[in-house]
Amino acid sequence: MNVFRLAGDISHLLAIIILLLKIWTSRSCAGISGKSQVMFAITYTARYLDLFTNFISLYNSTMKIIFLGAAYATLYLIYVRFKATYDHNHDTFRVEFLLIPTVILSVLINHDFSPLEILWTFSIYLESVAILPQLFMVSKTGEAESITSHYLFALGSYRALYIINWVYRYYAEGFYDLIAIVAGVVQTVLYCDFFYLYITKGSRANATEMSIEA
């Protein structure tokens, strides 16, 4: 554990809390891609199955349980509690274009051809592209509420901080995981356009909305 990794985890936690609070307090999930949230739930379910087989630390297990719980709580809010506000007409990204290639890739390129390891690899590949339906939705409607932008910024920061963590770990511990690094870089690159807009447009004093031109 190093400071970059911890900051990344906190940023991830913050993103999840921002999203849950936004939906809960506004009683609406307008502008949120349910498809991205479904893929995040699949991601954490596939990755954290090792909760039952591999104990790393109390911190590690606690965070896993929180991330899993929050992912399913988010799905509940979108698809059950505030279903009427779900903007499915704009959430039109074809998820099979992400699910099928990531399943195939995880079977072909993994560290070990075993069920848990393939599921872990699948979760890494799927997470790297899971935000695409959300980014697609934002570019399609041409705007994101500022709170949705903060969510995306926190989520993107989490991955960017993980990259710094990997650079640190490579030099400090000689540790590196090529699958996680390549997928993590892909994931972070997807946020670059958004980061640019968030920093240049989002910092205006009373900006309440930000536009994303595709």
Binding site: I56, K64, D112, Y162
Partner: peptide
């Protein structure tokens, strides 16, 4: 190899 694959990140 079991040890090496104990993914310790979230």
């Amino acid at each position: 190899i079991e040890d090496e694959l104990g993914h310790d990140e979230l």
